[in-house]
Amino acid sequence: MRTRHLRALPALAAASLLLAGCVANTPDDGSISVTSSADACTLSATSAPSGTLTFSITNAGDQATEFYLLGADGHKVIGEAENIGPGLTRTLVVQVDPGDYVTACKPGMSGDGIRADFTVTGSGTAAGPTAAS
């Protein structure tokens, strides 16, 4: 009996983790669209209020690409969407505190990528428990 309960623990932990990390899919309102091509990384907005941000990244190039939301230092990864093949649109949902950030598209999946500054303004909404700054 006891071992059966113990075996269920990892599953329970994973389930609660998933539930805690579930955030609303908001494709229409408030989502920032990103278009990544061979030589450009175009965002529909370069600033957003803090809280849950949704980036919808479309690969318009012919190489696989990645999209990153980086800290102001340009190294720390706040959020990343990988495996965006040509023709695909993938979503990055990330909980972000107010501050300065850097966005990057990485066509070809190597190098520093095509970078730009991104600002998150205070909205009074806490970014959520998992967004340790």
Partner: peptide
């Protein structure tokens, strides 16, 4: 397709574990 997505932080925590 559902109403809720998974945040990057949760996906990373799951993947890392």
């Amino acid at each position: 397709f559902g109403p809720r997505g998974l945040s990057f932080q949760a996906q990373e925590a799951l993947g890392g574990t």
